[in-house]
Design a protein around this nucleic acid. Structure first.
Lengths: 217, 217
DNA sequence: TGACCTACATACCGACCGGTATGTATTATC
DNA sequence: GATAATACATACCGGTCGGTATGTAGGTCA
């Protein structure tokens, strides 16, 4: 197994475990055990638990970014982009039992705020800002195409979307129930966007492609 | 100092500390030190850290409930009730520095989900459900009075409000910035409710009373 | 006055935490 | 084939965690 493999396994294992609970309650030992790496190996690759988290954030964001670039690609109509984004929220990056609640560990990670480590908070903040940027582009597309009611302060609405999505995922975790928010999130976003009623629930998602959907099922 | 005083001080101290960070990273020792109680005292009153949290949840919810009953009282118009609720979100129960981010430790506590303790999660779930109940009543009042656009699935909208508020508080914590969400939350809730535009930002809050506001300033 | 109970205080426990020092097998370089 | 750097593995550290065992001061009641 190569150098990069071990690094990557540590990163992905950390993401998985932190996603399942949270930064504070996932220990270095647990990460190592799950990844099949010893502590020496861990600290060979990362100088601290916090720095692992920061690198994992970047690693994760790059993956999310690729997905977002695809599903918000201009080849899709703004409405399709919106539906794609909604579906994306429910896609868990890590294979889980059906009753596990997904949501990305970092979009939903305001959760972890106040963990004490400044660098960790910084990473979360960055992630949040990046997410809002994508929302902003989507809001502008939808507005330009005339799908939204009334005037729109695009920056604000982009933030509102981010805030709502975070809350929805958090809600799902507390309630340990995906079904509810699967029904709630579309309407929540429609309402926040002020999407004209005639466009509610009108578009089939183009993403993920059917093949990929089948593969993860 | 009486028996009940000590109990209460432990409960309130725990709430304050957990609110400032989170369940996992607040230790029993820290709570004891801050409350001026020894560990023997702590475990005389509570059988575990988790059970303290559960009792603190109840204690806190009772306080919130009293406030909500006041600010959502039928003596206020539905619009006033809404504005009161919005302001309530920004009221910190614990005196803090201006740059500290408020938000109640439990409304915003999906945050803490996955801490491992089942009883803790149960408490959070309960709190969330109770909060939704109040939202539900408000949604129905607003709808009955004709303030809302289109059709409304009241239960769903009540949940959406809960989800959004959670997310907004979480957003504020990650961004360590109150100002943004103070401007965002009203519009966020207006949009989720589908409040007709002509009623946006139109009502002065009746709560908290001016005297109380001055006292906490 | 002595037995008893409540409400703590003090001292301490094993487990586990993040992190480190040091040893070793493997690989690249010359 | 010698040298050196890489990529770990093992053993261990001090500190902190939630929790407990035991002591004790002060009030209650017979």
């Amino acid at each position: 197994m190569s150098n990069q493999d071990t690094r990557t396994r540590l990163l992905e294992t950390a993401l998985e475990l932190i996603w399942q609970s949270n930064y504070n309650s996932v220990g270095v030992n647990e990460i190592c055990k799950q990844a099949g790496v010893t502590k020496g190996g861990f600290y060979h690759h990362f100088e601290s638990k916090a720095s692992l988290f920061c690198e994992a954030s970047e690693y994760y964001w790059n993956s999310v970014k690729r997905d977002l670039d695809t599903l918000l690609s201009p080849v899709n109509t703004p409405l399709e982009q919106l539906e794609n984004l909604i579906n994306f929220i429910f896609i868990t990056k890590f294979g889980q039992d059906a009753d596990d609640v997904p949501g990305c560990p970092f979009f939903s990670a305001g959760s972890q705020a106040g963990c004490g480590e400044e660098a960790v908070n910084e990473s979360l903040l960055n992630m949040s800002k990046n997410g809002v940027k994508y929302n902003l582009a989507l809001v502008r597309s939808l507005y330009a195409a005339g799908y939204l009611e009334g005037d729109v302060d695009a920056e604000r609405v982009a933030r509102l979307m981010n805030q709502y999505i975070q809350g929805a995922v958090s809600f799902a975790r507390v309630n340990r129930c995906m079904e509810t928010i699967k029904r709630d999130v579309p309407e929540g976003l429609y309402r926040i966007l002020g999407l004209k009623r005639e466009y509610w629930f009108k578009t089939a998602a183009t993403w993920p492609p059917a093949c990929e959907k089948a593969a993860t099922a």
